[in-house]
Design a protein around this nucleic acid. Structure first.
Lengths: 396, 396
DNA sequence: ACAACCCAGGCAAACGTTTGCCTTAGTGGC
DNA sequence: GCCACTAAGGCAAACGTTTGCCTGGGTTGT
């Protein structure tokens, strides 16, 4: 009931929404031989205004109007000139304009056995980093004349496979797999040689086109940063699920710490369970603190994990970053506005789209592709450590 | 150069990324009669492994294998039984399994003149609220057997029109317009009677199916909340661009304040320029403060605007919410983790998908639709006003 | 005068489905 | 024996493109 002026504590924030009804009905084409024949299929001709709806103009319409054959119109539309006289071209173009003809992508796709649609499969778009990738890829695809089908896999292998199959049925031109998980369907897709680009997390089956940062290096950079801040025993907060990307960050971090003389068993590792990184961060921080109090600094292998840890710190009244410097990885744009306490390695997600499309185009033209490592930025926070403007500590 | 242990202030956070090269090349089908014939179209048969690739099985393949006609296979696949004997069905299903046949969506779409794809057009997915809507709609569509093409319109009318056209060429089954802007193409789409659902912002041309909250009521609720907190002269931070949704919130807010005895000219309104709500919030707060100092409380017509205002408060050393209570609208999930200072009206975006799909199905079956008003929640923050756990103010 | 070309464009076969209509058998009723 | 009916399934025409091949006329070369 809206209107009440209360709004007390809601308990710990739980579900990120999305009840995920366990139906697991495969999207598109509810598995052949199923008995349910597309319920309530969109009746194209039906309209409340009744009567025979005018269909959009097709090649045939234009051809008739211009007094030529469909072949000629098709060639003109596709710029295959040299096959038509100037007058014919003019006549056809006039007809096209008059009928406001636009080529039908579905017909094209059928003929070409490939559409101008690219599928992007990603886990939880709730993560701002994922959203940033989606935005970037979408825009780059658009500039290249493609559109994007977005599939939220929730990091679940079966769902990923459902989508892979459904996308194949769509004759998509390629796949963009963001943080893909290992699965049977993925294996098949790759074996078939379908154009596939992995983003942010390497192909769990090895090989393949990849766009991402050098995660090991990023981890090492954080180690250098924390040591450089005078924090001699930093910890690391990570996820249980060993996704190549984040575990590489942790590995690079530890490696560098050890290389710089920190005893291996002095590096406290907290591994949070679950799926949502934000809850992982909360849980991992809790474990860490229970076992030995707050560290003076920590690598959080993703910004979301840092958010979770921050929440615990706030609950405990531990000021961040003064008593514990958290360093995340991602550099979400929102940090600059509402998370000034967070130091983060910024990943330039806004440039990923261009690289992804370039990789796809390589695959389409048969060129073999290699991994693309985008440069990440140095650890940075909104304000310098110890600089004047600090959040919400000023005179109150 | 990664590795440096500095990371000073980056200046005010600026661009939300996305350089938007002004190309404005229409996605898909670069406008007929254009001379550029699909550069580097995906060569379907080409594979580095060379040789004739095996195409996926089609109805014809299955028919041949089972020794029946394609018509029979089609009918069986679609569950139109009663036309085939039990043995035939068994034989065909066996063939389907053996060849792992899956119906080709493109062929279907061509035949039906409508695909099982729904287009969602939204401005900037950077906004967590938009992302939440996208997640919800995607999931609901999937459960209904559809997939979603996502189009980022950047709130620009021409881009919206480009996409609307491109989506029509795709024979999409329907349109989900999130915060649509008025445009010529939208007008045509509606005139054509294409199934269209508006989300979060009403149809700028009036009428049509809608899913969203009662924005006026939400504004009034915030007014009640702030007055109830003893804040007698609250302000409002809003955007210049008069989107129906946010301006209705502001209107409802002011209306209620006036109704409860606040003199109209005592209500300070700050109207920020620009497109990104977060920068609008920053700018609006700046204007407000310059003109008369910080208010004791304010409605921010969206959470993003509150984020922007918060940044200014941090810069000025003004503690939020102690000295100025900000109340946003959206209730982004992230608030509970890293924005405990924010009170917000939560909009249950995770339930929008279901309503949107229901609206679409109504449209598809020719039933006339009405607006769906989802109930928003009461203003709430993570912690009670003045409750013990306050962020980062504890003993340092 | 004839071969060799080129130009402009049409024919028709795909691509994978769906579906109205037809045919062929079989069955029951009279 | 004939009619009516049903069950089982095939034929072929769409849906909108693309493209290899063909044709008919014109030009050029010798």
């Amino acid at each position: 009931m809206p209107g009440v002026c209360t709004g007390g504590p809601q308990g710990r924030p739980g579900r990120t929404g999305k009840a995920m009804k366990g139906k697991s009905a495969s999207p598109q084409s509810e598995s052949p031989q199923s008995a349910s024949p597309q319920p309530a299929s969109p009746q194209p001709g039906r309209s409340p205004s009744g009567g025979a709806r005018k269909h959009a103009a097709s090649l045939a319409t234009v051809a008739r109007d211009a007094g030529v054959s469909v072949a000629t119109v098709s060639r003109i539309v596709n710029g295959k000139i040299g096959r038509a006289s100037a007058e014919t071209i003019a006549r056809v173009e006039e007809a096209i304009a008059r009928l406001s003809y636009r080529p039908n992508s579905v017909g094209r796709a059928l003929r070409h056995r490939a559409s101008r649609v690219v599928a992007m499969l990603a886990p939880n778009l709730d993560n701002p980093a994922m959203a940033a990738i989606a935005v970037s890829v979408e825009s780059a695809l658009r500039d290249a004349g493609y559109v994007m089908i977005l599939c939220d896999t929730h990091d679940r292998a079966e769902l990923q496979d459902d989508y892979l199959r459904a996308m194949r049925d769509q004759l998509v031109a390629g796949y963009v797999m963001v943080s893909a998980v290992r699965s049977k369907g993925l294996e098949e897709t790759l074996k078939r040689g379908d154009p596939t680009v992995f983003v942010a997390r390497r192909n769990p089956l090895g090989g393949g086109a990849y766009v991402g940062i050098d995660n090991r290096q990023a981890g090492a950079d954080v180690a250098d940063f924390l040591l450089g801040c005078g924090i001699e025993r930093p910890a690391v907060l990570m996820a249980q699920q060993n996704a190549s990307s984040t575990s590489e960050r942790a590995a690079g971090f530890i490696e560098r710490l050890v290389a710089r003389g920190v005893p291996n068993d002095a590096i406290r590792r907290a591994i949070g369970p679950g799926l949502s990184h934000i809850e992982i961060g909360y849980a991992a921080a809790g474990m860490l603190v229970r076992e030995g109090g707050w560290p003076r600094g920590a690598l959080c292998v993703s910004d979301m994990i840092a958010y979770g840890a921050y929440r615990l710190a706030v609950e405990h009244g531990v000021p961040i970053p003064q008593r514990c410097r958290l360093v995340g990885v991602d550099g979400n744009a929102i940090n600059a506005w509402i998370a000034p306490w967070l130091t983060s390695i910024r990943i330039p997600y806004e440039s990923f789209g261009g690289h992804v499309v370039a990789q796809l185009q390589s695959l389409w033209s048969g060129v073999s592709t290699s991994e693309v490592h985008v440069a990440h930025e140095a650890p940075s926070a909104w304000s310098n450590p110890g600089a004047p403007a600090r959040p919400a500590t000023g005179a109150g």
